[in-house]
C-alpha cells in the first residue's frame, strides 16, 4: 500500500528482534549499499548479527549451549 497521509507506513517495534516495516522499501546502509524489497512487510535487523543485513535472518535468537534443554535441535 503506497504511503499517504491517510495510510502512513506502519512500523512495528517489538521487545526484541527486528523492526517490522511495511513494504516496499529501499534501505540505504551505512556503507552506502542499497537494499530493496517489495515484500508486504520487511523485517529489518536490529541486532546487527544478520548474515543478510539489513534483513533479519533470526540471528537475534537466543542460543542454547550443548546439553541445555531445547526443543529446537531437530530441524
Amino acid at each position: 500500500m503506497p504511503n499517504s497521509s491517510e495510510h502512513p507506513c506502519r512500523i512495528t517495534i517489538g521487545d526484541d528482534g527486528p523492526l517490522l516495516v511495511e513494504g516496499p522499501v529501499e534501505v540505504t546502509c551505512a556503507d552506502g549499499t542499497v537494499a530493496v524489497s517489495d515484500r508486504f512487510v520487511v523485517a529489518l535487523c536490529m541486532c546487527r548479527r544478520s548474515r543478510m543485513y539489513p534483513w533479519c535472518d533470526t540471528s537475534h535468537r537466543r542460543r542454547t549451549q550443548p546439553g541445555e534443554k531445547s526443543r529446537r535441535d531437530t530441524g
Partner: peptide, 14 residues
C-alpha cells in the same frame, strides 16, 4: 519460547 531458541550445535537433518 521452545521454538524461538536455537542450539549452537544441532543434531537434526538440516
Amino acid at each position: 519460547e521452545g521454538l524461538l531458541v536455537e542450539p549452537i550445535r544441532g543434531s537434526g537433518v538440516s
